[in-house]
Amino acid sequence: MNRNLLFIEGFKLFKRSRAWVGPVLVFLLIIISFPLTLDINSDNPPQIYLSFIWISTLLVTMLGTELIFSEDFEDGTLEQYAVNNKLIEIVFYKILVHWVLIGIPLAFVAFLFILSLNISIHISSIALLCLVISNLIFINFFSLGNALSLKKGSILGLLITIPFLIPVLIVLGKITTSTLLGLSLVGHLSLLVGVMILVASFIPFIISFILRTHLE
């Protein structure tokens, strides 16, 4: 592992604060507007809120990864990495950095939102855990979409990646139901973790192949 490169990627994203503060703010705004369109009362089943959280984090992580490769592609940085065979490394670092600066903060904002609805701390912490895991999966797939649709806009990226994320959404839905029914979550959670490990270790290789083809 090249700490220096990882640090540089982190530094680049951190300095472009719009890129990581922006999505979190957008998420906050969505969260604020949600209760306003719904009568908040204790009769609402918590599923509604959780389902809303899954979908909105999905879309916001997409926003957050919009420039993950296109910026470095446009200004020639990727080209230079590719010449020195550092592409695959960079892909891993970029995804990691986006997860830390966007994925995880989003999960915590969502956690606070769920707590604010008087949903038990138990359920909220499970949601937090799920979001931390699923956001890494989302970021991987959206990065793939971004790599495929470089500078063609995010709608195309979304169109080609959302179908692959449907199984993850279904697992999240199952976790919601099981949590509310008080069933064991070990199976579902290990499935989610398994998917995360698979996705996070394979997708970067596909992405780096795609980026190389772009640079031809």
Binding site: K12, K15, E74, D75, G76, T77, E79, Q80
Partner: peptide
């Protein structure tokens, strides 16, 4: 170094 500079 390509014609794109890699500057941020």
């Amino acid at each position: 170094l390509g014609h794109k500079s890699g500057l941020k």
